[in-house]
């Protein structure tokens, strides 16, 4: 029995018909919606390459059944830049060399966006490292990644303050 589901992906509504329910959110994004920025590393919850935000929270898309998320709001790496302008987290990864081969990077960046929104790590490198522990990097770019997250968090805090002053 085909199943129809509807998701909002990066602000755009996507109606998808699934022939059978064995489709993860990761495969749906990559194979059905054509968004290949989200990567498949382990496909078993162990590496974080597939990290996306679902209803504002970071999760592993490889261990989520798409049909179970019917109606959800999904943000992937493709939805982060606004009007050709990189998100501060993306810009910080570039500024701090937070990658080498780049395979883990979309997951790292989405995880960092989630971590900053969760708001608990603050500027403490130890807490940021622990908060990013669900994302492995085979190239070992961890030092740059942690610096990028710290810097992005500061940038975001500054612009939030500016918004408040303008408002």
């Amino acid at each position: 029995m085909p199943l129809s589901i509807s998701l909002v992906v990066n602000g755009v509504r996507k109606d998808v018909v699934l022939e059978d329910p064995r489709v993860t959110l990761l495969d749906l994004l990559r194979e059905r919606v054509g968004l290949t920025g989200t990567k498949k590393g382990c496909d078993r919850g162990q590496c974080g390459a597939c990290t996306v935000l679902v209803d504002g929270r970071r999760i592993n898309a490889c261990l989520a059944l798409a049909v179970s998320l019917d109606g959800a709001d999904v943000l992937t790496i493709e939805g982060l830049a606004k009007g050709g302008q990189l998100d501060p987290v993306q810009a910080a990864f570039i500024a701090h060399d937070g990658f080498q081969c780049g395979f883990c990077t979309p997951g790292q960046i989405m995880s960092a966006v989630g971590l900053i929104r969760e708001g608990e790590a603050g500027d403490d490198p130890e807490r940021i490292r622990e908060g990013m522990s669900g994302n492995l990097c085979r190239c070992g770019a961890y030092v740059g990644i942690i610096e990028a997250v710290r810097d992005a968090r500061k940038q975001l805090a500054i612009s939030a303050n500016e918004d408040r002053r303008v408002a």
């Binding site: 990290t51 970071r58 592993n60 261990l63 971590l115 522990s133």
Partner: peptide
């Protein structure tokens, strides 16, 4: 336990 992403789910 697990990772932040897994704990969120």
């Amino acid at each position: 336990g697990a990772s932040p992403q897994l704990r969120n789910a």
